[in-house]
Design a protein around this nucleic acid. Sequence first.
DNA 1: CCAGACGTTGTT
DNA 2: GTCTGG
DNA 3: CCAGACGTTGTT
DNA 4: GTCTGG
Length: 252
Amino acid sequence: MCGRMLLTTPVSEIQRLFGVPERPNLMPRWNVAPTQDIPVIRREEEEGLPGRHLALLRWGLVPPWADDPSIGSRMINARGESVADKPAFRDAFRKRRCLVPLDGFYEWTSVGEGAKPRKQGHIIRRRDRGLFALAGLWECWRGPKGAPPLEPPLESVTVVTTATNATLSFLHDRMPVVLDPADWDAWLDPATPLPVVEGLIRSAPEDWLDVVPVGPKVNSVRNDDASCLDPPQEVERAEAKRKKADDQPSLF
DNA sequence: CCAGACGTTGTT
DNA sequence: GTCTGG
DNA sequence: CCAGACGTTGTT
DNA sequence: GTCTGG
């Protein structure tokens, strides 16, 4: 779950909503895939920079001890129930939490049986279609041990998951952790007591998000334009039919 | 002790 | 079937 | 997450 | 780097 994202809000709006000084050039994205760079909001006290900052990190966390960064493509999510203990995530959970801003994420269902089940995509967004933030963890990889340190190091990010909610349960039994804006500071602050942080890992209230089916374009990462949100053929046909019926002059 | 894994999802 | 790349 | 590759040798 | 399995 949560393996593809929508991020079309202009960077100026991200800058304003999260209160960051950076404003890199970000193209609108309808189909953000793992291994690609995504903007995150984080604290950078260790670099001596107070406050929140926006940085571009690779989606798919590469732990510092990795010999090969390709492990990141299997670390796109981190189970919230175990992030505090798992060697791959524990340090990041304690000291490197971040926000992942987005306009929506995609989930799929398998339709049909046998040899070729069809993949039916869905876009999950806020009901008001506004920007929101997922709970993320980030790490820094300086290359395989024994080799000279990579310059610059590879910074990467993963999205924390939790149990699904009533809105999304027909899609999956897991969902990403959607943070209430009131909790953004607590999630980002490395000084927040861990029990408090763990308390933020919970499924979203069911009235925050909704689900709309989309056509097959989003299935392929090669497609990254507004047509990824086009309705599937069935919905489009039903819509055309309804419209046609509406256009008919009333019989009465 | 050393060697080898270290992760998630979905599906069976 | 399983892994990798995007 | 899905799509697409999954291998070697030799030659260009 | 740290934990698990043998």
